[in-house]
Simulated assay, not measured.
Amino acid sequence: MESFRIFYTYRTRELNFITVTGMDMCEKRLFSVLVYSANDSIDLTHPLTPALPEDLRNLLYSEKEQIDRGYYDLASWNTSVLH
């Protein structure tokens, strides 16, 4: 079983950061982490990126291209209102 799962991201362009929200599947806890992302490219080595669990860091590295392209962006979701 995977340790972490990314649900969505949203960008704060003025601050050059991206917020990654997901779930720690082992602990059954939600997480939200602010990652440096100048020019729409996450930088996990930047000094302002917090220390992350190794499994989460590995997931972010493996999903970096999709994160940078906006695959997880909350703004790209189609929303519907149910009545």
Rank of each mutant, 00 (worst) to 15 (best):
K28V: 08
L48M: 15
Y8E: 13
F31V: 01
E2W: 02
I67N: 00
L59F: 01
S62A: 11
T49A: 10
L34F: 04
P47Y: 07
A51Q: 15
N39S: 11
R13C: 09
D73M: 02
F4D: 03
S37N: 09
T19R: 14
F17M: 13
S80H: 13
A75S: 14
L74R: 07
R69G: 04
L52S: 01
A75F: 04
R13L: 14
Q66T: 04
L44T: 00
L60I: 00
M23A: 13
Y10P: 10
F4V: 03
K64D: 06
I42T: 00
D68I: 00
P50E: 12
D68H: 01
R29S: 10
Y36W: 12
K64C: 08
K28F: 12
R29I: 05
N78D: 09
L59Q: 03
P50Y: 08
L34M: 13
D73W: 01
Y61L: 15
T45I: 04
A38C: 06
R69L: 07
Y36K: 15
A38Q: 07
T49Q: 08
T45W: 02
L74T: 01
E14W: 11
E14T: 06
Q66L: 12
S80M: 12
E14N: 09
R69D: 05
D43M: 03
Y71S: 06
D24C: 07
Y72I: 02
G22R: 05
G70C: 01
H83G: 14
P50T: 06
L48G: 08
L74A: 07
R5Q: 12
A38N: 10
S37R: 04
D24M: 08
E65F: 02
S41Y: 02
R5E: 07
P53Y: 02
L30K: 10
T79G: 08
T21K: 15
T19Y: 11
S80I: 13
Y10R: 12
D55A: 13
D73S: 06
D73L: 05
V20K: 00
T49C: 11
H83C: 14
N16Y: 03
T49D: 07
F7H: 14
P53Q: 05
I42N: 00
R29N: 12
D40K: 09
L56N: 03
R29K: 14
